[in-house]
Deep mutational scan, measured.
Amino acid sequence: MQIFVKTLTGKTITLEVEPSDTIENVKAKIQDKEGIPPDQQRLIFAGKQLEDGRTLSDYNIQKESTSHLVLR
């Protein structure tokens, strides 16, 4: 499924993911596309910070959901 990640600069990154993917996996995909190390990434969805060990389905992130990327 596709999800979108919006950066603070207003850029939207499109990612191909599975509901069973962990947040860690998603951060690795963002690193592949954008070159941002996962330890600098914070992903926010529905006002919550997403934890590495959880999956997209844990957070009820469905296709075409948009989460926000904040850099630390």
Score class of each variant (00 low, 15 high):
5 V>H: 01
52 D>A: 07
18 E>N: 13
20 S>E: 10
46 A>R: 14
20 S>D: 11
47 G>Y: 04
52 D>S: 06
32 D>C: 10
41 Q>D: 01
26 V>G: 00
27 K>C: 01
28 A>R: 15
29 K>C: 04
63 K>G: 14
59 Y>E: 03
70 V>Y: 12
15 L>P: 00
49 Q>M: 13
15 L>N: 00
19 P>V: 07
7 T>M: 15
8 L>Y: 13
21 D>G: 03
59 Y>L: 06
46 A>W: 08
9 T>Y: 14
51 E>Y: 06
9 T>F: 13
24 E>M: 13
34 E>A: 12
59 Y>W: 02
34 E>K: 04
61 I>D: 01
54 R>V: 05
12 T>G: 03
37 P>H: 11
17 V>C: 09
49 Q>Y: 13
8 L>E: 14
49 Q>C: 15
33 K>C: 09
12 T>S: 07
7 T>I: 12
9 T>L: 11
44 I>H: 09
26 V>R: 00
2 Q>K: 13
34 E>L: 15
59 Y>K: 01
36 I>T: 06
51 E>M: 11
26 V>H: 00
39 D>S: 13
21 D>F: 07
69 L>I: 13
72 R>P: 11
61 I>G: 01
46 A>T: 05
52 D>P: 06
16 E>L: 13
33 K>V: 12
25 N>M: 15
67 S>W: 14
15 L>V: 07
67 S>I: 15
68 H>Y: 14
72 R>N: 12
19 P>A: 09
23 I>W: 02
30 I>M: 02
57 S>F: 09
67 S>T: 15
21 D>R: 01
35 G>W: 03
55 T>C: 07
6 K>S: 07
4 F>H: 12
53 G>T: 10
41 Q>I: 10
33 K>E: 07
46 A>Y: 09
34 E>R: 05
15 L>T: 01
5 V>I: 14
55 T>E: 03
28 A>G: 09
44 I>E: 12
42 R>W: 10
7 T>V: 09
60 N>L: 06
68 H>I: 15
57 S>D: 08
45 F>N: 05
42 R>T: 15
11 K>P: 04
65 S>L: 08
29 K>R: 07
60 N>R: 06
21 D>M: 11
11 K>E: 08
55 T>S: 08
45 F>I: 05
16 E>M: 13
30 I>L: 07
60 N>H: 09
49 Q>D: 14
44 I>F: 15
58 D>R: 02
36 I>N: 02
31 Q>M: 13
7 T>A: 05
34 E>M: 15
22 T>K: 07
45 F>W: 09
27 K>Q: 02
20 S>G: 12
58 D>F: 13
56 L>F: 02
48 K>D: 06
36 I>S: 03
5 V>A: 02
23 I>C: 01
17 V>Y: 03
72 R>D: 13
34 E>Q: 07
41 Q>R: 02
31 Q>I: 02
61 I>K: 01
48 K>F: 09
22 T>R: 07
63 K>L: 09
32 D>N: 10
20 S>Q: 10
52 D>L: 05
69 L>K: 01
